[in-house]
């Protein structure tokens, strides 16, 4: 047989590929034994195919052979048999550790969340408080603007009440709106009345001198701006303030006349 032609036919490549029939395989085998050239050719073809197929292999694992040997019962020593168990334990521990960490994390998040909620509540309360303050301030402002408007009103008569005798240092002012029969008493210049006493405001006509009580200032201490609105239907010629026992007196106690002021004749 012509060895060169035999090799060139391509049958040896198919032999290595494993696609020949059983009979063809036996023939090639016989020829390989008889002709070293054919054997060498087969070895070279095999080497080329080995290199090519190895080239597309993904990374190998060192553990693969060990596992295979275990599967075919080649590892009677206990070390290797216990290996998968210890692996399982390891995963177990990791699993437990992970769950502990997860739980701790969840608790931490819950605590943080509660803290935040509390903080939000505190802030809400503070906010409400501040809103109230603002509301109050706005009320105060409105009141002040109101007062200012009243004092500036051209129809209002301002009557300064000067300190009398022993009470020189005291003063007050009356703003009298004749249109509405209302007076606004500014009692800023009066000291706080002693326990059991109250200030009483009097409307006076001078000829003859006749006092008419306009009432007591019961809430002097608690009032912030010391401005009191009082009804006055009288044709007053002067106003006076005396200190009287609680509940007021029918006639003024002249020794306790703090301030007095005369209404100027024309508004």
């Amino acid at each position: 047989m012509n060895v060169k032609e035999y090799i060139a036919s391509g049958i040896l490549e198919l032999y290595v590929a494993g696609v020949l029939s059983e009979k063809e395989n036996e023939e090639v085998y016989a020829n390989m034994i008889m002709h070293e050239e054919i054997l060498n050719e087969v070895l070279k073809i095999e080497e080329a195919v080995l290199k090519l197929t190895s080239g597309v292999a993904p990374a190998s694992y060192e553990s693969t052979l060990k596992i295979i040997k275990e599967k075919i019962g080649l590892t009677p020593d206990n070390d290797l048999i216990s290996l998968p168990e210890s692996k399982i334990n390891w995963f177990n521990y990791v699993g437990w550790a992970a769950s502990v960490i997860l739980s701790a994390g969840l608790i931490y998040v819950m605590i943080s969340n509660n803290d935040l909620k509390e903080h939000i509540e505190t802030v809400e309360t503070e906010k409400e408080f501040l809103e109230q303050q603002i509301e109050l301030a706005q009320d105060d402002l409105k009141e002040a603007e109101n007062l200012l408007a009243i004092m500036r009103d051209k129809d209002i008569i301002a009557v300064p009440l000067a300190g009398q005798a022993a009470f020189q240092d005291t003063y007050a002012k009356v703003y009298w709106d004749k249109a509405t029969n209302a007076i606004y008493l500014d009692a800023q210049g009066l000291p706080e009345p002693p326990e059991g006493k109250v200030y009483q405001l009097w409307s006076l006509t001078l000829n003859p001198l006749t006092p008419t009580s306009l009432g007591v200032i019961a809430n002097f201490e608690s009032d912030d701006n010391k401005i009191f609105t009082i009804e006055n239907p009288n044709a007053s010629e002067a106003f006076g303030i005396t200190l009287e026992p609680e509940g007021g007196s029918p006639t003024p106690t002249m020794e306790q006349l703090y301030t007095l002021g005369v209404v100027s004749s024309s508004p």
């Binding site: 590929a17 494993g18 059983e22 085998y29 095999e46 080995l50």
Partner: peptide, 13 residues
Amino acid sequence: SAAKGRFFTWLLN
């Protein structure tokens, strides 16, 4: 068996 083919080819199959 060697008569049937290369060992590599056997594994390959």
